[in-house]
């Protein structure tokens, strides 16, 4: 366990990368969104939309760097791949937790003040009670997923090279596009939407968590064989 904590300390050498930058992006996006919402002259529901996701995208960059730049140093520090992997994912989870906490606090304030008294929302509007922590949990899961996405991409690039990574990403995009075309062609949007509605926010979040666990395991298998 101490060795895993050492890796966390090693990752947190980049405190700016892990905590500073995401918080700067989150508060920047927040202030900008509120400012714009203030300027919109309507009493109807105002939602800042994608602004809240701004720091999440950055997480995929953090995930990439965690592997590409810090793994070689952890190898020089004679840590095992397993300890590196566990320590890094725990670091990511901690950071995602911090971000989700900020999200939760903002959403609680927005729920209590009716959107800052102007019906304007930075977090997902229209939620109340236990839905708020669930929304924060999904925020956490999405942050973890994006981190794992960047981390897994870096693992593929280190394990098999840039060409393979590009092929995998292209392949993934094609599969996704085909799936969407298939859904549209067969007119089954309704079914897809119904599925998500039945799962609810919590259900969908848990599916996301399952995907995160699979990605964490998959990237571990790659890291075990990365050569240096």
């Amino acid at each position: 366990m101490t060795r895993v904590v050492t890796v966390m300390r090693l990752q947190f050498v980049n405190r700016r990368t892990y905590v500073g930058m995401p918080l700067v992006i989150l508060s920047g996006a927040f202030l900008l969104a509120i400012l714009i919402l203030l300027l919109v002259p309507t009493d109807e529901l105002k939602f800042a939309g994608g602004a809240v996701a701004a720091p999440l995208w950055y997480f995929s960059v953090v995930g990439w760097q965690a592997l590409a730049l810090t793994f070689p140093f952890s190898q020089a520090m004679s840590t095992t791949r397993r300890d590196f992997h566990l320590g890094t994912l725990l670091t990511a989870a901690t950071t995602a937790g911090i971000l989700a906490t900020f999200y939760l606090v903002i959403s609680l304030i927005e729920a209590a003040t009716g959107g800052w008294g102007m019906n304007g929302y930075f977090t997902i509007p229209g939620l109340s009670g236990s839905q708020l922590p669930v929304a924060a949990l999904s925020y956490f899961v999405v942050a973890c997923l994006l981190f794992l996405f960047g981390y897994t991409c870096a693992a593929i690039a280190k394990r098999w090279g840039g060409v393979v990574l590009t092929s995998v990403l292209t392949g993934l995009s094609i599969v996704l596009a085909l799936a969407i075309i298939l859904v549209i062609r067969s007119g089954s949007w309704g079914t897809v939407v119904t599925w998500f509605v039945t799962q609810g926010l919590l259900g969908t979040t848990l599916w996301g968590l399952l995907l995160a666990v699979l990605m964490a395991y998959g990237s571990y298998l790659m890291i075990r064989r990365v050569e240096h």
Binding site: L10, Q11, L69, F73, M77
Partner: peptide, 16 residues
């Protein structure tokens, strides 16, 4: 040797 992105020698020694 590659070092973590924003690290300084003092960080590297602390980890070592």
């Amino acid at each position: 040797q590659v070092y973590p992105d924003s690290s300084k020698p003092v960080h590297a020694f602390r980890i070592a």
